[in-house]
Design a protein around this nucleic acid. Structure first.
Lengths: 109, 109
DNA sequence: TCCATACAATACCAAATGGTATCATGTTAA
DNA sequence: TTAACATGATACCATTTGGTATTGTATGGA
């Protein structure tokens, strides 16, 4: 099914969620830490985190009584690939993007 | 204001709209032509086209009694730039994308 | 043990979204 | 002129979405 790309674009459609990704790009954060940056309840932030997880843009792992949320590249790859599809109709060279993605497995942490 | 990026991501969040972009990547099309590919009314397709236009992903120009819709790169640039922001957290080299975007003005049709 | 902490889950609500139906407007060809 | 054509605009409806409030559950320190 093609539901993954839908989940990713859906996740990116909300400004709060894009902002969360920016925050998580600095470091892994618990739900409470993420929530501290927004004027809404933790429950609301948690919902956004779930949608980001469904879009494969973040991952969450339980550590004791905390849950650490981390930025993940899968969803971003999906978006990059999608943009790349249009490179031929766009007079900009994006081929490098495609090849960079395919090389991902070879790079080191 | 930062409403442009919101309009673009909002426009991409719907599968019908992403499909419309795929169709328009083949050629400019009237509303009727676009509608022929979908099982919904022309009015519904027209609404999608307006949202795509707000996201700077297409442009529409009236030609007599027809309206031709064409793929536009502005919104795609927005998305590409956004993805590029995360390249540093992602062990893939996307710098080429950024420079390609900045060179756009120099390329020919 | 026992309580404060950090999160999970659910019910509920208002607003935005995706769709149809309907009517109005400008254009082309006879 | 006039009728069919292609689109534009608006009202309306069901569903989804983004949020709060509330309640439940597991963890860790005193």
């Amino acid at each position: 099914m093609n539901t993954e790309i839908q989940n990713t674009f859906r996740a990116l459609a909300d400004p709060t969620r894009r902002s969360i990704l920016m925050h998580l790009s600095a470091k892994e954060m618990t739900i409470a830490e993420v929530s501290a940056h927004f004027d809404m309840t933790r429950a609301a932030v948690k919902k956004h985190l779930i949608i980001l997880e469904e879009g494969e843009l973040i991952s969450a792992r339980r550590m004791g009584r905390e849950t650490l949320n981390r930025l993940e590249p899968e969803g971003l790859k999906t978006v990059a690939n999608w943009v790349n599809y249009f490179s031929g109709f766009w007079n900009i060279k994006l081929q490098n993007l495609q090849s960079a993605i395919e090389e991902e497995g070879n790079s080191k942490k």
